[in-house]
Amino acid sequence: MELLVFVAASAMVLGGALGVILMRNPVHSALGLVLTLFGVAVHFVALEAHFLAAVQVIVYAGAIVVLFLFVIMLLGVDSAEDLKVDGLTIQRPLAAIIGIGTVAIVSVAVLRTRSTIAAGPALEASGDSNIRLLSRNLFSDQVLAFEITSVLLIVAVAGTVLLTRKQSGPTGARKGS
């Protein structure tokens, strides 16, 4: 049963990820991303991280991809980029070789170390232990990382203002992204 869930969820993750990069229509790509994120949520459930699974669905699959779709719709669905233009002929085969090589190296590394990877601490069976453990970790060991995330958000906000602010004068060009 566990294996079945794992295989199904992994198929969702990988299939969705391939869809993101292979689909021609950006809306389809965004939907592929939903599939991937949903598959990750299934993995979380299988690992008994129910809270993370719920957050994954609500925040990522729900909110973030919807924002992606908004942006895609606002910019125009039809503006599919023509990816046929190619500068250097060697680029694509080289990219394929390096991509496959990276996947192979990482896979071999994981397979070779499979037996020695330390098992994490077992979760307590009680209903709310998930949230409790998460919050304890977040507000003790990782509290600084948690705070630095806010610096990151300030950068994002200031950057958005800088890139979208109307400039005085006729030179104020509109920035798409």
Binding site: I148, V155, L163, Q167
Partner: peptide, 26 residues
């Protein structure tokens, strides 16, 4: 002293640099 903290610092720096590089919008 923690790789997650290092990554967040890296992202804060990099994101700011991406925006600053594009800041002469005209």
């Amino acid at each position: 002293n923690d790789l997650i903290v290092l990554f967040l610092g890296l992202e804060a720096l990099s994101l700011a640099l991406y925006v600053l590089a594009a800041s002469a919008r005209q």
